[in-house]
C-alpha cells in the first residue's frame, strides 16, 4: 500500500529524512515508532501530500504522491495528532463540511456522516457543539473525520494522546474493525504498548533513518531476546562462570547472601540449576524476562534525551 524509495526531505540545511525505504503491505496494521524529531511527522506529511519530498519517491496505492497526488490523496485519510475540528460547530456539521470537501453529496454524504458518527459513538450528541465535548469524544470524532470517504489507507498520527482508557479501547476497536474490513492503517505513537497491542508489523525510525522494519515478533527476537533472571547463593564470580556456557550473562546485583544474574537466553532450568549446584552456588529463584518493544526501541534509538528535536 505504501512504498517509499530513497525518500528524503530537508528543512533548509537540516535533513529530516535520509533515503528512507519503507514497504507497508496492503491491509496491514503498521506501527511507526521513533523518538521526537525522528522524522515520523515528516514521513506522514509526505505520504498525505502535505509536504513535498526533497528527493526519492513515495507511492500510495501505486500512485506517486507528487506526480499523481490527487489520486494518492483520494485513497488516504489523515488523523492528525492535533484535534483538527471546528469547535464551534457540531460533529454533524464538521463531518458534513469535510464530507463535501471529499466530494460527497446528498445521500452519499448523509450516509458517510451517519457511519462516521456511529464509528465515533457520537450519534446521540451529533448536534452538540464540539467545544462542549470531552477530550475522548473529540479524539474519536477526530478519527472519524479521517474515515469519511472510506479511505484505503488511514494514517493515524498519535491518535490517542490524552484520552481516557474507555475511549482508547473504543478507538482500538474501531481501528481493528476498519483494518479487518481491509483498510491499511499506518499508526504512529509514543505508547509502545499500543503498538504491541495493535500492530503486527513495525518500523522504527530515528534521525530520519529506518532503524528496522518487519513483523513485531521477528524484531523482538532479533533485538531483545527473552532471558532469565536468576537468584543464586555463594560466590558471585563462580556462579557467573557456571552460567556463561548457557548464554551471555552479567551480574545485576550482588550481596553477601545472594547474587542476581541476568542471562540473555531462555534455556531449560534443570541443566542450569545442576551447573550452578555443581559450582557450589545453588539456584534459589528464577524468573523469565519477557522481551518487549520498549527494549527494542531503547536499544536501537538509545537513551539520550531528544529535547532539542
Amino acid at each position: 500500500m505504501i512504498e517509499t524509495r530513497s525518500l528524503g526531505r530537508d528543512y533548509g540545511p537540516q535533513v529530516a529524512l535520509h533515503a528512507l525505504d519503507l514497504h507497508v503491505p496492503r491491509g496491514s496494521f503498521f506501527g511507526v515508532l521513533g523518538p521526537n524529531g525522528a522524522g515520523k511527522s515528516t514521513l506522514i506529511q509526505i505520504l498525505c501530500g502535505v509536504l513535498a519530498p526533497s528527493r526519492g519517491t513515495a507511492h500510495v496505492g501505486g500512485h506517486d504522491v507528487v506526480l499523481d497526488g490527487l489520486a494518492a490523496r483520494r485513497l488516504t485519510g489523515l488523523v492528525p495528532q492535533e484535534i483538527a475540528l471546528h469547535e464551534e460547530l457540531t460533529p454533524r456539521q464538521n463531518l458534513q463540511f469535510f464530507g463535501r470537501l471529499y466530494g460527497l453529496r446528498a445521500e452519499a454524504l448523509e450516509s458517510a456522516v451517519a457511519r462516521a458518527l456511529a464509528l465515533a459513538d457520537l450519534t446521540p450528541r451529533a448536534h452538540e457543539p464540539v467545544q462542549r465535548m470531552s477530550g475522548g469524544m473529540k479524539r474519536r470524532l477526530n478519527i472519524a473525520m479521517g474515515t469519511l470517504h472510506s479511505p484505503q489507507l488511514l494514517v493515524c498520527d498519535e491518535p490517542t494522546v490524552g484520552v481516557d482508557p474507555q475511549s482508547r479501547a473504543h478507538i482500538f476497536d474501531c481501528l481493528r474493525t476498519m483494518n479487518a474490513a481491509g483498510t491499511t492503517i499506518l499508526y504512529t505513537t509514543h505508547y509502545m504498548e499500543e503498538v504491541e497491542a495493535l500492530c503486527p508489523s513495525v518500523a522504527i525510525i530515528d534521525h530520519g533513518r529506518l532503524m528496522c522494519s518487519g513483523p513485531l515478533a521477528a524484531l523482538l527476537a532479533a533485538h531483545a531476546p527473552a532471558g532469565l533472571a536468576l537468584v543464586v547463593q555463594g560466590n558471585a564470580e563462580r556462579a557467573l562462570a557456571a552460567v556463561r556456557p548457557f548464554g551471555t550473562a552479567h551480574i545485576k546485583t550482588s550481596s553477601a547472601s545472594e547474587t542476581n544474574i541476568v542471562l540473555d537466553a531462555a534455556v531449560p532450568l534443570a541443566p542450569l540449576a545442576a551447573a550452578l549446584a555443581d559450582a557450589g552456588t545453588p539456584l534459589t529463584a528464577a524468573s523469565h524476562i519477557v522481551s518487549n518493544l520498549e527494549q527494542v526501541f531503547l536499544k536501537l534509538t538509545g537513551r539520550a534525551l531528544r529535547d532539542n528535536a
Binding site: C48, V50, L78, E82
Partner: peptide, 15 residues
Amino acid sequence: RRSGMWRRLHSLPVP
C-alpha cells in the same frame, strides 16, 4: 495551522 486543520485540509484530494 495551530489546530492541525491546515494539515487535514492539505491532505484532501483537492488542488
